[in-house]
């Protein structure tokens, strides 16, 4: 049940993409998002899409798995696209009815939007498929390190993220157990009106909160017992290192953003 809401959804295989530095993958995602929103023509978007296809192929992620990540947002994307088609005011009008107009420009913008959103979703799931939650946290911590200068608690934030990642599946399990126990006592958790459902949540929520507090307390003790203080004199076992693979990808990112920016200024095929 709740466990099926896969969190982090890391796909455990060995691949070129899996081995990349997590910081680089996070940067790549950001650069990629910038690129697809800068892209103004289909050629530019096509390049972005092709790059992503290579990425997925190099990551050894089955296509079905990638498409499934798109399925989750399919309705939202199509709905937005439909709104766009119907309300965009362009010059080449095909059809008109009341406030609704279908224009060539509208169709084109919608198509762009759909492709952009799909690429966005696929690229971010490529990141989570190929990077363990721990590596992701480490990468973020490392990228945010400059913020330590303004006394932003980067280390604490990273620790909180890593603990959250560790406890989410445990608490999901616990929720399952408590729900089952209350169902066995005749609680009806999935029927009745809104008021009834809200009331039905109490017997699950209270034990869950108590359990979370208890665990927090226990974890706190276990951390103290292992000499946890404020992280000032802390060392880190895992160091993130750049390798030649990372360099290649870094060059690719730079080329991508530069290329798309150039195409924005000097369009190859004007719309």
């Amino acid at each position: 049940m709740l466990k099926d809401v896969s969190f982090g959804q890391y796909y455990p295989v060995r691949s070129f993409v899996h081995n990349l530095d997590p910081r680089l993958k996070i940067l790549f995602l950001i650069a990629y998002i910038v690129a697809i929103f800068l892209a103004k023509e289909f050629l530019a978007l096509g390049i972005c899409a092709a790059l992503l296809v290579f990425g997925v192929a190099f990551a050894h992620i089955p296509a079905g798995k990638v498409l499934r990540s798109v399925k989750g947002v399919l309705f939202l994307v199509l709905f937005t696209a439909a709104i766009n088609v119907l309300f965009y005011r362009g010059k080449t009008v095909y059809w008109e009815w009341g406030i609704f107009t279908v224009t060539f420009e509208g169709i084109m913008t919608s198509a762009f939007l759909v492709v952009r959103l799909f690429l966005l979703v696929i690229c971010s799931s490529l990141l989570t498929y190929t990077t363990t939650p721990v590596a992701l946290t480490d990468g973020l911590e490392s990228l945010l390190t400059p913020l330590k200068w303004i006394r932003f608690p980067v280390h604490e934030l990273a620790l909180i993220m890593s603990i959250a990642l560790r406890f989410i599946p445990i608490l999901a399990d616990e929720t399952d157990r408590i729900m089952n126990a209350q169902k066995a006592r005749g609680a009806e958790l999935d029927s009745g009106g809104l008021a009834k459902r809200i009331r039905a949540v109490v017997p699950v929520l209270i034990p869950l909160l108590l359990s979370a507090f208890r665990r927090a307390d226990e974890l706190g003790d276990a951390m103290d017992a292992r000499c946890y203080t404020d992280g000032k004199h802390r060392t880190k076992y895992k160091k993130l290192r750049f390798s030649w693979r990372d360099l290649i990808v870094f060059v690719l990112i730079a080329a991508l953003v530069a290329g798309v920016s150039v195409m924005r200024v000097y369009p190859v095929f004007a719309l």
Binding site: T132, V134, L159, S162, L165, R166, E218, L219, D221, A222
Partner: peptide, 12 residues
Amino acid sequence: FQNPDSQAVASI
């Protein structure tokens, strides 16, 4: 401590 599920800080 007692509870095997509430002592680890990391996932790996």
